[in-house]
Design a protein around this nucleic acid. Structure first.
Lengths: 350, 350
DNA sequence: TTGTAGGCGTTATCAG
DNA sequence: CTGATAACGCCTACAA
């Protein structure tokens, strides 16, 4: 039922030569007929199409790519794939890439011993690469630039000139968030998850510090994390929540990411603390869980999906040569006020 | 600083020929020296290594693949990438694939017009494919089998013979979950999200029906979903929660997935209903959010990450020829009792 | 130990 | 309109 007349016991993939032979023409004509380039006689075309169908011919991607000199594939590099964050970005990327007719190769440098090597390998398989954060070392990025491999950085800055850079806004939203927290009457701030977790996080930290200083409020207490694993988060969360009796115990714990904040929420529950009455908590990202947590988490929304899509389109411009000058774009973010930051009278927002 | 002596203004990628010429040898020797196959004189080798380094030579993947007859890449097909579920599976897959020295190409058939076409294209780029659920039509799977492309199905069954099949256990866990719900005294069951949402979901439905029948409890009320979008879930959740006054209003809403259950939890909160006192709720999957929701969600844990890893390893066996007979594996699952299913006296589990 | 030459599967150029 | 044929970049018998 698959091959109509005369099963083809051969096992090797059908090549253009077999089609050509069967149709009684040269391979060039087959190529032209099949891809619609150049003109082919009507009768000839039909013979070829028929032969191709009968043989179930599928052009080898390797051959095509080699001849065309392009892969028709995009790469993307993440530090990890855990949590909902990266999935969203990847989704947006995938979607846009598919639209543009390109496949997506994913690398998560996570547990990889030789992350940089993997990135180099990736570069050899694709027409362009998107790199999240600081997953690729500067040398590697420099190499990519040197060999004119289109590159987009999803990070707040680049130490190499050449790649596109896509960032999300930190300072302004952090200030707005801080002001909101001040309006709740909070005065003793703890920042859990930084500084020194990277440029993004430090920008938020700086904005927090600045806004508090401007308001004449004591400086926040920085509490860097030892890691982002579940265990580390748990320990850190318990730690910041300890000693509630002390007079300098924080009113509010501002967290570098939602996942940190969620860990704090969980720990608070275990310790019998009420959020936001005993202590307020905020996150950053607005991952799906933020809406479902108890209490619902006040955070800052990042347009992750959109970011992935933009990255794909940016990269496409670079690859197709539509644009040759690097671009630096900042995506806006905005605070999402829910319940973990303090009590809002009769708030009825979703 | 990049190229030490004599910058190379050429723009085209360095080929093995250039290295050979520079080292004053033939390309075959370069190939042997660089990949460590066959023996090469010590001095010669050094000259070659030097030349390669100076030229910054990186073998073209296309060339290598074409010559070797393999891609060193694996594919994976998901219906979507939204939510935490697929991300976890992908993570496990990625990890294992990287370990095995293979790249991963991802396809999400989601918004794709020509999903099957994309899957075919994918197949041409990789040595083997993993397919989640029913994303690939039977014909396409049959094609893959026909052309001997190693294939692993992440689904409860296959209508085509040949591929490996990796499943997770449904019936037993569904029965255990149901029995637990019965032990809470629940008698009026609603099943939200099925049946007819696919084999997995229907298996759970069947187990629910069977267990209730065996206990002499009225049959559950099936409430299929019109879709998995946020909007559809919201509407459905409100609907099942309406009419709390009616005598046949459900004691417990058993949901096909966590995401459905979480929507119900949200809706209940909006309606001022208390879970589990007014109505109990359960999910399936144990996504990360389940632990953070309010109340924490009783569900069934699926080993998503492990599933991805197993798929990668299974596929590798098929590709490498270590194993030639198809394999059918069922991963076990287990209920995770938290608080949304009913009140547990002094339960202090995490 | 080393080099030559054929092959992998297409595309595209250039004469017929 | 069509058919040889030269790339494309590498690997690997085979010969020297």
């Amino acid at each position: 039922m698959d091959d109509q007349a005369g099963s083809r016991p051969e096992d090797t993939p059908v090549t253009i030569y077999q089609v050509a032979q069967r149709a009684g023409v040269g391979i060039a004509t087959v190529s032209r007929a099949l891809r619609g380039t150049g003109s082919v006689g009507a009768r000839t075309r039909e013979r070829i199409l028929l032969a191709a169908r009968e043989l179930n011919f599928v052009p080898s991607r390797l051959g095509v790519s080699l001849a065309e000199g392009r892969h028709a594939a995009n790469g993307i590099v993440f530090p990890s794939l855990t949590g909902p964050y990266f999935g969203e970005v990847l989704l947006g990327y995938e979607e846009a890439a598919a639209e543009l007719g390109r496949s997506v190769i994913v690398v998560a440098t996570d547990g990889l011993g030789s992350a940089q090597e993997h990135i180099r390998d990736l570069a050899g398989r694709v027409d362009g690469v998107v790199i999240y954060g600081r997953t690729a070392e500067s040398d590697v990025v420099a190499e990519l630039v040197a060999e004119h491999k289109p590159t987009v950085l999803l990070a707040p800055w680049a130490d190499v000139d050449g790649p596109d850079v896509l960032t999300t806004e930190n300072t302004r939203s952090a200030r707005e968030l801080t002001e909101h927290l001040l309006s709740h009457g909070h005065r003793r701030f703890t920042y859990l998850g930084g500084p020194t977790g990277g440029r993004d996080i430090d920008e938020r930290w700086a904005a927090l510090v600045g806004t508090l200083a401007a308001a004449g409020v004591p400086a926040p207490l920085p509490v860097p994390l030892s890691g982002y694993g579940e265990a580390e988060l748990y320990v850190a969360a318990r730690a910041v929540l300890a000693d509630r009796g002390r007079p300098d115990a924080p009113d509010v714990i501002v967290c570098s990411h939602d996942e940190v904040a969620l860990a704090v929420l969980l720990a608070a529950r275990e310790l019998g603390l009420t959020v936001p009455d005993d202590v307020a908590v905020t996150g950053w990202d607005d991952v799906v869980t933020a809406k479902h947590s108890w209490p619902p988490l006040t955070t800052v929304r990042q347009p992750m999906r959109r970011m992935g899509g933009m990255a794909a389109r940016s990269l496409d411009e670079l690859i197709s040569g539509t644009r040759t000058t690097p671009r630096h774009e900042v995506l806006s973010t905005r605070p999402v006020i829910r319940e973990s930051c303090g009590n809002h009278p009769q708030s009825s927002r979703r």
